[in-house]
Computed example of a mutant assay.
Amino acid sequence: MGGGKGADYHLHGLAHGGPPHTVEKLWPYVEAARKAGLDEMGFAEHDRYLNGLEFGVFAELRRLAPLPVRQGIEIDFHPTRSDLRHIAALPWDYLIGSVHHIGNWAFDAPGEEARFDEWDPDELYLSYFDLVARAARTGFFQIIGHLDLIKIYGHRPTRPVVELAEPALRAIAEAGAAVEVNTAGLFKPVGEIYPSRDLLERCFALGIPVTVSSDAHSPEEVGRAREEGLALVRGVGYTHLATFKGRQLIPVPLDG
């Protein structure tokens, strides 16, 4: 990796502002990635912005940028979605599968916290990880995003989380997908990287590759807390990170 800091593949250039994509709008992210010492970067907009994405803009961005720019997408997985095959057929370098909803409940959205009280915590975690497993089993995703996002507000199960997540972890391993070590959790109420160390240790034991990402929604957040994420990955035992081009996983050695 040339002494750099690897790839950050979870960057939202549109944040929550919506289309259109332009080189001018995305360039501050490129500059931030360069200053952060990243070797690669990748944009993964929320799939609700799909119609505003311009593949030509990314071609121009790749031509101008001082580091490789990958194009991905973050898909909000619902088991009833019928458009996954269509979206997956587009020329992405990778697809991130994330679970943000349980039924009609956007559990990580501001103002939705009270609904956690309607659940038994173990049943909540089981329901969440069942959706993660179903996302992995589609075979469409190269990366599973923020694996234990359900902890965002600090709600914890009474049973060991690894036990509750085991079927999902096995589904991810069988799909050959990577798990994202997402530092955005440090800046949420839970104050903890996604996933927790015990889950990451189980990922390592199952041979699941990892990426480290910031989930940035502004240029200032690109690569944030990356050293903490890398330290967690190293501490668990990983010696390589997953990178992607044309959906092909390319392992690269961790520096240090």
Rank of each mutant, 00 (worst) to 15 (best):
V132A: 12
T183M: 04
E112Y: 05
G6A: 03
E221F: 01
G191F: 12
L50Y: 08
D130V: 07
L147V: 03
R156E: 15
V233I: 06
G13C: 04
P28S: 11
P219T: 03
H78S: 07
L164T: 14
I143W: 03
I208S: 00
H16P: 00
E228W: 11
L14P: 01
V181F: 10
A205W: 01
I87T: 15
V161M: 10
I208T: 13
R137F: 04
L11I: 06
T138E: 02
G191P: 12
L84W: 07
N104T: 14
G235M: 05
G72E: 01
E192A: 13
E54Y: 02
E227P: 05
W92H: 10
M41F: 08
R34S: 12
K245T: 14
E220S: 12
E112L: 09
G246K: 07
A36R: 15
L95E: 11
F43H: 06
I143S: 07
L199V: 09
V236C: 08
S196N: 09
N182G: 09
I75K: 00
H86Y: 11
G176P: 11
G237K: 13
K25Q: 05
H10M: 02
G229Y: 12
L11P: 00
L186F: 13
L95M: 15
G185R: 06
T183G: 07
R197H: 09
H155P: 02
S213A: 15
S196W: 10
G139I: 07
L50S: 10
I193W: 03
S218H: 03
A205E: 14
H155W: 10
V212A: 04
G237S: 08
A231F: 06
L67D: 09
M1Y: 02
I75D: 00
D93H: 04
G185E: 07
P195H: 06
V212Q: 03
A205V: 01
Y238H: 12
F55L: 14
F141T: 10
E74C: 07
H86R: 13
I172M: 10
W105E: 15
G13W: 00
V252R: 15
A109M: 14
S82Q: 15
G13T: 03
G37R: 12
E174M: 02
G17V: 04
E118G: 01
Y128K: 13
P79C: 10
H155N: 09
Q71T: 15
G3K: 14
Y29V: 07
L53F: 10
N182A: 08
